[in-house]
Design a binder for these strands. Sequence first.
DNA 1: GTTCTTATTTGATCGAGGTCAAACCACGAT
DNA 2: ATCGTGGTTTGACCTCGATCAAATAAGAAC
Lengths: 226, 226
Amino acid sequence: MKTLRLNSNDRAVLLRSCFFERLPTAASSAILDDVVVSTHEEHDLLFAQGEALDHVFFVLSGLVRLYRLGKDGREADIAVFPKGELFGESAMFLGNRATANAQAIETTMLARIDSRKLRKLAERTPEIADALMQLLCRHAQMAEDCLAEDRLLTAPQRVASYILGNCPDGITNFSFRLPFQKNVLAGKLGLAPEALSRAFSALRRSGVTVKGRVIEIHDRQALERF
Amino acid sequence: MKTLRLNSNDRAVLLRSCFFERLPTAASSAILDDVVVSTHEEHDLLFAQGEALDHVFFVLSGLVRLYRLGKDGREADIAVFPKGELFGESAMFLGNRATANAQAIETTMLARIDSRKLRKLAERTPEIADALMQLLCRHAQMAEDCLAEDRLLTAPQRVASYILGNCPDGITNFSFRLPFQKNVLAGKLGLAPEALSRAFSALRRSGVTVKGRVIEIHDRQALERF
DNA sequence: GTTCTTATTTGATCGAGGTCAAACCACGAT
DNA sequence: ATCGTGGTTTGACCTCGATCAAATAAGAAC
C-alpha cells in the first residue's frame, strides 16, 4: 500500500459523488482538508473485522468487497462498493471497530477521511449530519434488500432482479456490461460461481444472452415474471 | 386501532429507552411534545411497503414484525422489535415511503413521532442527529448480521448463535424464556417453524433443553463449538 | 376437568444449491 | 499463432432445509 496526497482530479471525483454533491462547498472542503489517498493491489486486505478503524473510505477508483468470515473460513459478502461510494462509516458509531473485512477486488485507490473529525464536523454542520444519515440509511436498505432477496428468491430470480436493477424501466431490449467478474457477482448475490452460471443458463430461455461480461436482455417482461 | 394521548407512564418508558436516555431533557421534550399513542391488536397491519409513512414508531408495549412480501405471497422477516425499540426511521430519509410491511405480533402500543418534525429537530440539535445516526447504524448492523448468519451458518448454528446472544458471557449454565412464540423466532432466523424445531432437537445433544418457551443451556462451550 | 383451538413436533418427500472434478474458453504473455 | 493461466461452465452427487401431512402438546374458554 502506497499513500499520496489528494490531487485535483481525485478531488473532482469526490465532489461529484452522491455524498458530497449536496454538501455546501465549505463543508466539503473542511472534510477533505487533510484527506490522504492510498493505493491497493488486487486482493489486498484493507481492514479486518474487529480491528480498530478510524477512517471512513471513499472509493476513488477500483472496487472494494466487504465480507464476514465464518468459523470454517468461508466468506459471506456484505456489500461491494464501486468507484464513487463511501464505506466503513458504521464503525464511526460503533466504537471505531470494523464489523467486517474489506478487500480490494482490483487495483484500487481510496481516499481516507478521518472519522473522528467527520463526526465532529457532523455535529456542527447539519448538512453533513443529514448526508451521513442518508448514507447510513442507504446502506441499511442495501443490507435489508439483500436479506429479503436471499430469503424470497431463488438463484435465477436473484440474477433476474440484479439484471433488472441495471436496466432502465420501460425498455424491453437492453444490454450492459458487468462491472466486475462473474465471480464477484456470485458472491454479491450469495451464490457459488457454479450456481450463478446455472442461473444464467436458466435465464437464457427467458431471452437473456450472456457473452463474457456482456448481458443482453430481449424480453424485459419475461424477466420480471421469472 | 385506537389512539390516545401519551400518559406519564408511557413517557417514562420512552425516556428510559436506549434512544432517549442520552438526549438532553429539552430535546426529548421537544420530540415528545405532540406524540400520539395508538393501540393495535395481534396481526394488525401497521403500515405496508410502498405506503406513505410520516411517523417514526416507538414500541411502548408488545411486539412488532417488519417483513417484505414476495411475489408469491411468501413473507421474509427483516426484523422484530420488542418494547423499547424505535423503528420506521429509514423511511424518513427515503422519501417517506415504507420499504417493508409492519405488523403487530401481539397486542401492541406505539408512540408515533412525526418524522418531519424529528428531522427538523435533528438539524438544529446535534445530540438528536447523533442518536439517529447511532440508531440507523444499529439497524444496519442488525441486517448485516442477519445476512452474514444466513449465508454462513446452518439452522442449528443460527439457533445456537441466537441462544448465545441471550446468554451473558462467562456463564456456562444458563436459562431464559423466549420473548415470543417459536413461530416468530423461526421467522426472525429465516427458518420454517419445522426447521427451528428440528434445530432445537439437534442442539439437545449439546446440552440445550427446551420446555415450552424456556431454554436451558448446560454447556456454553459445546454451543460455541457447534 | 373437559373441550376446542392453536402451537409445536415428527415423519416423509422433494428440490435448490453447495461441493468436487473435469472440461472448456478467454485472454495476456511470449 | 501458440501456450498457459485462471475464469467459467458442465456434470455428478449430496446435504440442508422447505413443504405437506399427521400426530402431539399446550393453552384458552367453558
